[in-house]
């Protein structure tokens, strides 16, 4: 009797949980998750002549990711242009992750080892760029690296170079830009991991004859590894799907996957290919996030 009443109360609570969540779910289903299913469908259709699709099952969208059809003889061959875009996306994303880690780790360590009263301020200084409009930060870095920008002006003024460095509209520009805009995404999870790190372990390390490098390699890095994985994925994922930064700093030529997808919905008028590319990007990102979730649950499950 009592358990019956309990069950009833329990199911009432579950019902109210769902009821209260329903409005949010409707909005999300309508304007976030639901449309993704349409993308899946579109990737299997025939491209329309003026964009959009013809409702006709077709695998050419998926095949078109790696191959392109010769306009004259209609044969399929490996699409070098596509491959170079994928390679650039992966290469630039990995380099962005490496650079942000190389400078982000010392920064996070520096913040975490400040006296508690100062720490919040340093952290706030990292957080402001984090929440500042990505486009504005891209414009700001553009101001620095373009041909008549701050960097060239200063370098010419002090006489290091006589003609401006042509960084803008190159892969290097995109790389600098992405490292700049995604750096806070690396520093914040690293900080969180280092903040949890028990500094007394350092004393134990030095007490047991480790040098500073050994303490870093043998004690600090293994213990903050979950934070390193988190930061790397948080940087790698948006880098791979970047759109604004390569568009502004890469010019029209140095496209990444994001710009390539846009192209299919614009000038190229190949919606199924664009849909298939989007799904591919989504799958890669989801795989990366799975690694992230695994790493973070392992950390959140300390034995004993």
């Amino acid at each position: 009797m009592a358990s019956n009443a309990e069950e009833k109360a329990e199911s009432a609570r579950t019902r109210s949980a769902w009821l209260l969540s329903t409005p949010a779910l409707i909005v999300l289903l309508f304007a976030a998750s639901g449309p993704l299913l349409i993308v899946v469908t579109y990737s299997f259709l025939t491209p329309g002549q003026y964009g959009n699709v013809v409702w006709n099952f077709d695998l050419s969208g998926w095949v078109g990711i790696l191959f392109s059809k010769d306009i004259f003889d209609g044969t399929w061959h490996l699409a070098d242009a596509h491959l170079s875009i994928f390679w650039r996306s992966v290469k630039l994303s990995l380099l962005t992750t490496a650079i942000t880690f190389a400078v982000g780790f010392p920064t996070a360590w520096f913040i975490a080892t400040r006296p508690p009263t100062q720490r919040a301020l340093w952290l706030f200084l990292i957080t402001i760029p984090f929440w500042t409009n990505l486009l504005i930060r891209t414009i700001a870095i553009n101001e620095v690296i373009r041909n008549e920008g701050l960097l060239n002006t200063v370098l010419i003024w002090i006489g290091v170079i006589s003609t401006p460095l042509h960084i803008i509209y190159t892969d290097t520009a995109v790389l600098i830009g992405m490292a700049y805009v995604y750096l806070p995404l690396m520093v914040l999870p690293l900080y969180a991991a280092i903040d949890r790190f028990d500094m007394r372990l350092l004393e134990a390390g030095y007490d047991l004859y480790a040098s500073r490098i050994q303490v870093l390699r043998r004690v600090i890095l293994p213990i903050v590894k979950p934070g390193i994985i988190a930061g790397s994925i948080l940087v790698f994922v948006p880098s791979l799907g970047a759109y604004v930064t390569p568009r502004v700093l890469g010019g029209g030529k140095n496209m990444m996957i994001g710009n390539f997808i846009e192209l299919q919905f614009g000038q190229a008028r190949n919606w199924p290919l664009g849909a298939a590319l989007s799904m591919t990007l989504l799958i890669v990102v989801m795989a990366a996030l799975l690694v992230y979730v695994k790493a973070s649950t392992r950390e959140g499950n300390p034995h004993g």
Binding site: R200, A204, Y206, D207, Y209, A210, S211, R218
Partner: peptide
Amino acid sequence: NKRPVNTVFQSYALFPHLTVAQNIAFGLEM
């Protein structure tokens, strides 16, 4: 790290990423 003196810490400060044997070996390895 250059003093032939070792400490047993109040919190023990055992390295959580190492096993018991690895913890004991740490100083010798260093």
